[in-house]
């Protein structure tokens, strides 16, 4: 999926020698899940229902991470997604108040908020020249503060009909999983088959070159931030549907900011930008989901789980990063 990127980048990785990172990672993750399920005698987890459960674990993080992939590809980063997810989930339940007629207005309002946040983030980074870590950490803190100050004891719920998004499905496959698949395909299409996508890679890979080639790099950085915020919004809406009502802490408790960055990098998108893609990111998300499910089956204690996850994050990135010849910081 990242073939376009390779043609644009001076080769420092060579993907053609072996399977792409995404495929290797996905196979390993799925294989790990299957082996653990068989070894612990939990063969029911390999039924359609079990596998759908595994895929459902991917949805929230998957949506955020696709958006994160866009910003990382242009060489930026977004730490505000966790707070934005909480904001969207809270806003959705606040506006709907269980009323199905308010579903559409609520969705529009939520995406409007995301658009605004994305524009602010993008403007601060692209036009203000502020380091993206600090800019988005700042906007994230602002959102989180306003949320916690005003909605600490909120009562509200999304409409029952809206919860179909999280609990309904067709042919045994939940709509939410289909939504993730659809949006992932759309993102991959945009990145690989459109001029916009090619420019995203160009801006991240070589901003000066891109500028010389007449690309408005600032606009692309801005666009990437808007996309990331909208994807975070989608994740927030999904969580609101799944949890019935949003609390101002769901984004923070889910650690969606750091985890989305981690899975993106695990999936082979490099932090400097210009290389990587959605397929790798989704493989990274699958790794996290199958670790969650497998650790449950193994009954590993919560603290040990954290240790293992830390080690696996480092190892997963090291496996493909170690071939890199230059310096990283």
């Amino acid at each position: 999926m990242s073939s376009n990127a390779i043609s644009m980048e001076p080769a420092s990785f060579n993907h053609r020698k072996g399977l792409p990172i995404a495929a290797v990672l996905a196979i390993l993750s799925a294989g790990f899940f299957v082996v653990i399920a068989l070894a612990t005698g939990e063969s029911a987890q390999l039924s359609l229902q079990g596998i759908v459960g595994l895929l459902q674990r991917m949805v929230a993080l998957g949506l955020v991470a696709i958006g994160q992939t866009f910003v990382i590809l242009v060489g930026s980063i977004d730490l505000s997604v966790a707070a934005l997810i909480s904001a969207v989930a809270v806003l959705a339940s606040l506006l709907m108040q269980g009323d199905p007629a308010m579903i559409l207005p609520a969705i529009i309002a939520c995406l409007g908020l995301c658009l605004a946040v994305g524009l602010v983030n993008g403007a601060l980074v692209a036009y203000g020249g502020i380091n993206p870590l600090i800019a988005t950490l700042g906007t994230g803190l602002i959102i989180q503060g306003v949320l916690a100050a005003s909605f600490a004891d909120l009562q509200g719920a999304v409409a029952r009909q809206f919860q179909v998004l999280a609990y309904g499905g067709m042919l045994g496959i939940p709509y939410s999983v289909l939504l993730l698949a659809l949006l992932a395909l759309a993102a991959a299409f945009i990145l690989n088959k459109t001029l916009f996508g090619a420019r995203i890679y160009a801006v991240g890979g070589n901003p000066d070159g891109a500028r010389l080639a007449g690309i408005h790099t600032e606009r692309l950085v801005l666009a990437a931030h808007v996309i990331a915020s909208l994807f975070a919004g989608a994740a927030g809406l999904y969580l609101a549907a799944r949890l019935q009502s949003g609390t101002p802490w769901i984004g923070r408790d889910g650690i969606y900011d750091l985890e989305s960055i981690a899975v993106t990098v695990i999936g082979g998108t490099i932090l400097a930008g210009g290389k990587g893609g959605v397929a790798g990111t989704l493989a990274g998300v699958l790794l996290f989901a199958s670790l969650d499910a497998s650790f449950n089956m193994l009954g590993i204690d919560a603290f040990l789980k954290q240790v293992l996850r830390g080690g696996i994050v480092i190892a997963a990135v090291a496996i493909h990063a170690v071939r890199y010849k230059g310096h990283v910081a």
Binding site: L239, L243, D292
Partner: peptide, 24 residues
């Protein structure tokens, strides 16, 4: 069988679903 949701609502929902569908 003890499964730990690490303070995440969404994970706890998935955990419960997996326990129920696991049939044990």
């Amino acid at each position: 069988v003890v499964v730990d949701a690490e303070g995440k609502d969404e994970k706890q929902i998935s955990d419960i679903e997996a326990l129920v569908s696991g049939g044990r």
